[in-house]
Amino acid sequence: MKVFSEEGKTMKKITLEVNGKKVSKEVADHTVLSVFLREVLNLTGTHVGCDTSQCGACVVHADGKSIKSCTALAADLDGSKVTTIEGLVSNGKMHPMQEAFKKLHGLQCGFCTPGMVMSAIDLLKHKKNPSDKEIRDWLEGNICRCTGYQNIVAAVKEAATKM
């Protein structure tokens, strides 16, 4: 996969733990994390909707915190632990947040969903039982065009009872 120009770039070897696995790769300095995940590691579950950190489709966890992977340099995250949507399933079982989204129809086209789920999980780390308003405020950085957010809010509440 070649996303970058060969000309005038510097490459750096970076080592990250992605979804529990250590990966070492040479990347161009201007590689952002979303490109690193999608194009270098072929983890295409992380989506790019706006590429300028407004829509939130690209949200992943870096060292336990949700971030927008389109706006973080891969080199900057050298040494970090990154979890993507692909890393949530354990022993073939979906994460309670994923289960809740399925149960309550918290997704339609699925494009914003990975970022939405990753962001919502981070919320529950901070607030065990968030109110509707707290959920809606927290999801300010995740745009969904399909669901009108109602079932997403319901799913996050449902997940809160299971986590």
Partner: peptide, 26 residues
């Protein structure tokens, strides 16, 4: 509950941008 959800929820959906061929150009 939707049959299509699990793939979309686990990052296993396949959107056009996810498709890359051998000898790909851009």
């Amino acid at each position: 509950e939707r049959k299509e959800d699990k793939k979309l929820l686990t990052g296993r959906g396949k959107y056009t941008a996810d498709v890359t061929f051998a000898h790909q150009t851009y």
